[in-house]
């Protein structure tokens, strides 16, 4: 996937969205509202406790900011892109992609973007920044570096999960509802993974690796993260991406009947 093509995707989506500018206001208002609700829920928890899984209030708000930024990635890129795969498979639109001299996975993933939801990323990071101020904690360069690495790794992990879920469309054709499954599990990333009991923690770290998506980047910002964990996060992202790519290839083989 060349930069030029990504640029063309960005341009065409922006041109599409600019026709409906009211969408931008609606989108930002929606995000602000859901962030406010999340903060209220959190405040409610903290009337009964002073820490959740060893994290205090403002630390969890940092995590919530990271959660919102990643939600922005999901809503801006994944849901409108790879999230449409099932429909494209069923409707045959994928055929028109497969005859083009581009990487089909890249094309499907980035052809459709929901431009306004990129604002969610900014809003989420803003919330995390505000919480850091309240914590009186200024992250060092190393911590910021670790945050950037782990956040990028988180985006890759979430992307890989979507690719895996959506690739099931090639076997079961009708999997639109599987996005709901993702939403349900991803809700678990709102809180630090240490807040969960052992079995769930195991699930979120090793099986559906959403622990890597919010807990680790937020830990980097608040100075809890050991440097080797940042490297591990990058490694996990690499493995997740490779597995997702392999599944995608197997799925395409099935689609074309190459696997017999």
């Amino acid at each position: 996937m060349t930069g030029r093509l990504l640029g063309a995707f960005w341009r065409i989506n922006l041109a599409e969205e600019l026709q409906y500018r009211a969408n931008f206001i609606a989108s930002v208002l929606g995000t602000l509202f859901s962030m406010a609700t999340a903060l209220l829920t959190l405040a409610l928890f903290f009337r009964h406790t002073s820490a959740l899984g060893g994290w205090d209030y403002w630390e969890i708000v940092v995590l919530l900011g990271v959660f919102n930024a990643l939600t922005g990635v999901v809503e801006a890129v994944l849901r409108p892109g790879i999230g449409r795969l099932a429909g494209e498979v069923r409707g045959g639109g994928l055929d028109l992609v497969l005859v083009k001299p581009v990487d089909a996975q890249g094309f499907v993933s980035f052809r459709h973007l929901d431009i306004w939801r990129f604002a969610d990323i900014v809003l989420g990071l803003g919330l995390a920044g505000y919480a850091l101020v309240r914590l009186h904690h200024a992250p060092s360069f190393a911590q910021l570096g670790a945050f950037v690495v782990t956040l990028a790794a988180a985006a890759v992990v979430v992307y890989a999960i979507w690719v895996v879920l959506m690739s099931l469309a090639f076997w079961f054709v009708s999997v639109e509802n599987i996005a709901v499954l993702f939403d349900a599990v991803y809700e678990g990333a709102r809180y630090p993974v240490s807040a969960y009991p052992g079995a769930l923690r195991f699930l979120f770290v090793y099986l559906i690796p959403i622990a890597w998506t919010t807990t680790i980047p937020a830990s980097a910002l608040t100075g809890r993260l050991r440097p080797e964990i940042a490297l591990a996060a990058a490694l996990v992202a690499g493995v997740a991406f490779t597995l997702a790519r392999a599944l995608w290839r197997a799925a395409l083989k099935r689609y074309t009947g190459a696997s017999g």
Partner: peptide, 11 residues
Amino acid sequence: ETFLLNRAIYD
């Protein structure tokens, strides 16, 4: 706009 996209796709 679609033509321009294909211009990018086919280089």
